Simulated assay, not measured.
Amino acid sequence: MNAKSPPNRCRIVLISPAGETADSFSAKLSAAIAGGDIASVILPANGMDEATYQAFAERIVPIAQAAGIAAIIAEDTRIAGRVKADGIHIDGGKAALAEAVASFQAKMAVGAGGAKTRDDALELGEERPDYLFFGRFGYDNRPEAHQRNLSLGSWWAEMIEIPVIVMAGSDLASVETVAATGADFVALSSAVFGEGIDARAAVQRANAILDETAPSFEPAK
Rank of each mutant, 00 (worst) to 15 (best):
A3E: 14
A168N: 03
G153A: 14
E126W: 09
V101E: 02
M159V: 11
R118F: 08
A112L: 10
L122I: 09
S40M: 11
D198Y: 07
K84V: 12
A27D: 14
A202D: 05
G47T: 13
T77N: 03
S151L: 10
G87V: 09
R142G: 08
A67Y: 03
F133V: 13
M1N: 12
T52N: 14
Q105A: 12
I69F: 02
G81C: 13
A191M: 04
L97D: 00
E75F: 06
A106C: 09
V101S: 06
I73E: 00
P219Q: 10
A201T: 10
I88E: 00
A32S: 09
I165Q: 04
A96H: 08
A64S: 13
L43A: 06
Q54L: 11
D140G: 05
R205M: 10
S190R: 04
S40E: 06
A179K: 00
N2H: 10
R11C: 07
I88N: 00
K4D: 10
C10S: 08
C10E: 03
V186M: 05
F134G: 01
A31E: 13
I73V: 13
S16F: 00
K221S: 15
I79P: 00
A100R: 00
S190T: 07
T213G: 07
A201L: 12
V203C: 09
R78F: 08
A109I: 12
I160E: 15
V101Q: 05
A115K: 02
L29M: 13
T77C: 04
E58Q: 11
G196Y: 14
V41D: 01
A70S: 09
A55K: 06
L172W: 02
A115W: 01
E218I: 14
M48H: 15
E20L: 07
A121C: 13
P163I: 12
N46P: 03
T177G: 02
E99P: 02
Q105T: 11
T213R: 15
A55F: 05
F185C: 06
S30N: 14
K94A: 11
E212A: 13
F56T: 03
G196H: 11
P163H: 11
L172D: 01
M159G: 09
A96Y: 05
E75L: 11
I69P: 00
I12Q: 00
D49K: 15
T77V: 06
A55H: 07
D140R: 04
R148L: 09
F185K: 01
A145N: 01
V203A: 07
T181S: 06
D119I: 12
D120Y: 03
S40Q: 08
P7F: 09
T52G: 09
D49G: 14
I197N: 06
G153D: 06
G113K: 01
K107V: 08
L172M: 13
R205Y: 08
L43E: 02
